[in-house]
Amino acid sequence: MANEPDYLDETPSQTAGPYIHIGTVPNFLGIEGVYAEDLGARMIDDQTRGERITITGRVLDGVGAPLRDAIVEIWQPDAAGLFPSPEERRGTADPHFAGWGRSACDLDTGLFRFETIRPGRVPLPDGRLQAPHVNFWIAARGVNVALHTRMYFPDEEAANAEDPILARLMAEGRGDTLVAKKAEGGFHFEIRLQGHGETVFFDL
């Protein structure tokens, strides 16, 4: 907020470069013995409430090649629509659900993968309910400011139809880019950084 003297400017973003795996998922990369476990690797345990799902996907560049040097993070509510966070004021989330997950894109295939649960619905500030969705964040070489997007579910037709954000994007012809495909054991979400079918990214 440059025009408000009392406010500091945010530190500017820089690309994560090609080696973000070193700092965020060293065990996945094969650097063992520094951290016991990569953060964000486990979102659920045996007692987590809700329908287990697997989310896989890829991040594709402008010529359709999968990024193999990206990190993908997700943040989602529990099955009741509550976030496991101190900022959550609507109730207490499932203590057996982490809400946050981090996956490296595979160094060969580019696939990311999350074992999680189907999220509940969350209201907008004006009270209108959103459809179940998973918030995504993508950092990689060539991405100067990490990208925010969200994934909706193909089998939530009724909720999707009344989601104010998705409905607006559908009307503009771009909503389909946020709807995952049904896949074995869950869903597959392809994120296209540019070109035909470019995924919608958000300024939050």
Partner: peptide, 13 residues
């Protein structure tokens, strides 16, 4: 695309 911040944006682990 600008969208309103809701619980999913202001919360974190």
């Amino acid at each position: 695309i600008s969208i309103p911040q809701s619980w999913g944006e202001i919360t974190g682990p």
